[in-house]
Design a protein around this nucleic acid. Structure first.
Lengths: 141, 141
DNA sequence: ACATACCTGACTAAAATGGTCAAGTATAGT
DNA sequence: ACTATACTTGACCATTTTAGTCAGGTATGT
């Protein structure tokens, strides 16, 4: 299972982006300063987000990034998928056609991980950027 | 979030144990052979399982391990907890009282991880060894 | 006594993580 | 045209975690 800082940063940055993306694009430098995330690292993350068309980039002075869709259309699943945070639990070796751990049958836990994966994905499919945004605005009033 | 092979091995080993633990204790050597897990690694894992009283050990010839409770009383939560597989997602630095990422407020994703954690724990609290056992027996008939 | 099997702790190679660094390219504003 | 801003790309790296191995025990049934 992979769910690390990269995914967290991606979500934080996108919430930030969603909040300030009104008229002008938002520069990574601003996000970096506001969220306390290294600029260089943000660039890596945003290049992936762009590849998955979650954000659009605008170059040049006063350039920056803009969301490609509305906040309620961006689910957390999409974000994690973009930055390679696979909600994929321990792999039973799948290269070998044989089964898990070189045995001829599936290991007893094989189905378990599939179920867990579904369970987690359900959670992330329901949550959108907008949900987080709301939650955050409420808390700051 | 940590959910690695150690946890998977622990579950596999315990299911194996539950299946063969009828009259005699089961030796790690047998589990190692049946499940294809290194004996030395199993010993590490079982020392933790023992510390959390999920299994009992019997020394000497024909010794081995035995479950401390009935399979339906052993939830996966207990197992993962024992082997230090914390279903704990990305940490926002908690040492600093200030908040996440050195900012004075909680980061926007802070609550999200708590929710996720609960969501996953719910899953593991419902699943017991017995469930896996049943599932496995069904499949092999 | 001796084989079996648990017990303990130190060690380690390889991979993943969380970045940094360097050298660009594109564009807006002057 | 120049220049500052900001995106773009790819290589690099220190640290930590993972998934074990290794070496030496200790306890106990036969």
């Amino acid at each position: 299972m992979k769910l690390t800082s990269k995914g967290r940063y991606a979500v934080m940055a996108l919430v930030d982006l969603a909040r300030f993306d009104n008229i002008n694009p938002v520069s990574l430098r601003d996000i970096s300063l506001r969220q306390g995330i290294s600029l260089d690292y943000l660039e890596q993350i945003f290049s992936k987000l762009k590849k998955d068309q979650i954000v659009k980039s605008i170059r040049g002075t006063h350039g920056g990034y803009v969301l490609s869709k509305k906040p309620n259309e961006i689910k957390l699943t999409n974000i994690f998928h973009a930055v390679d945070e696979k909600v994929k639990t321990v792999q039973c070796k799948k290269e070998s056609k044989k089964g898990c751990n070189g045995k001829s049958t599936k290991c007893v836990t094989h189905n378990l991980w599939d179920e867990l994966e579904n369970h987690i994905n359900t959670f992330f499919e329901k949550k959108s950027l907008e949900d987080l945004l709301k939650n955050n605005i409420e808390r700051r009033t």
